[in-house]
Simulated scan of single mutants.
Amino acid sequence: METTTLRPPQHRVSPIARWYWAAHAAVGWLILVAVQVVWLIADGDDIPLRVAGLVATVVLATAHVVVMPVWRYRVHRWEATPEAVYTQSGWFKQEWRIAPVSRIQTVDSARGPLEQLFRLANVTVTTASAAGPVRISGLDRETAQRLVDELTAKAQATAGDAT
């Protein structure tokens, strides 16, 4: 029997994931900026302080929306072998995970509204692990569907009850 060891996965997520991550981050920042603008207009006290806060928010938002997607794209990786599913994710807190095929209980794919717009999907591999499911985010739809089909077939072909 081959031993499964922690190692960097081979495949990157879809390059379009960078645009998705940027858009997702931008939505949150735009809400914060809108609240600050309304507060600036509605209340006339401490205008210089509020303008400084708004400028700081815009600078931080710009840095986050520009740097984070590039950084995450360099880190996020995945791979499915006959023995296991490997993932690497995160950008500040980075995580490497392995899910042996023999432990796979379910394989799911999901797409939120923004992910649908970018034609991306996520694959979730649930195992009996207390660490929770293994997630691969930012795959193009076709790759995600192929991966779900492949992992489902491998899990069904593996003897045992995945516990």
Rank of each mutant, 00 (worst) to 15 (best):
E2T: 12
T3G: 02
T3F: 08
T3A: 07
T5Q: 11
T5V: 14
R7P: 07
P9T: 06
Q10P: 03
Q10T: 13
H11T: 04
R12Q: 15
I16T: 15
W19Q: 03
Y20W: 10
Y20L: 02
W21D: 14
A26R: 01
G28N: 08
G28I: 13
L30F: 09
I31N: 00
V35H: 05
V38E: 07
V38Y: 09
W39M: 04
W39G: 07
L40W: 04
A42C: 02
A42F: 01
D43S: 10
G44C: 10
D45K: 06
D46V: 03
D46E: 09
P48N: 07
R50Q: 05
R50N: 00
G53I: 00
G53N: 00
V58C: 12
V59N: 09
V59H: 10
L60A: 13
L60S: 08
L60W: 12
A61T: 03
H64C: 13
V65G: 03
V66I: 13
M68R: 13
R72A: 08
Y73A: 11
V75S: 10
W78I: 04
W78R: 01
E79S: 01
A80D: 00
P82R: 06
E83V: 06
A84H: 00
T87N: 15
Q88M: 03
Q88I: 10
S89E: 13
W91R: 05
K93S: 05
Q94D: 10
W96G: 06
R97W: 03
P100H: 04
P100L: 12
V101K: 14
V101A: 06
R103C: 07
R103N: 14
I104E: 04
Q105N: 15
V107L: 14
A110R: 15
R111Y: 00
P113V: 06
L114S: 01
L114E: 07
Q116P: 02
F118D: 01
R119G: 12
L120I: 02
A121V: 04
T124P: 00
T124Y: 01
V125Q: 05
V125W: 03
A130I: 10
A130G: 11
A131G: 11
V134D: 08
R135K: 12
I136C: 05
L139R: 00
D140N: 07
D140G: 08
D140L: 06
E142Q: 09
T143W: 08
A144P: 09
V148T: 07
D149M: 01
E150Q: 14
A153T: 15
A155N: 02
T158M: 12
T158A: 15
A159V: 13
G160V: 02
D161H: 13
A162P: 08
A162W: 13
T163C: 12
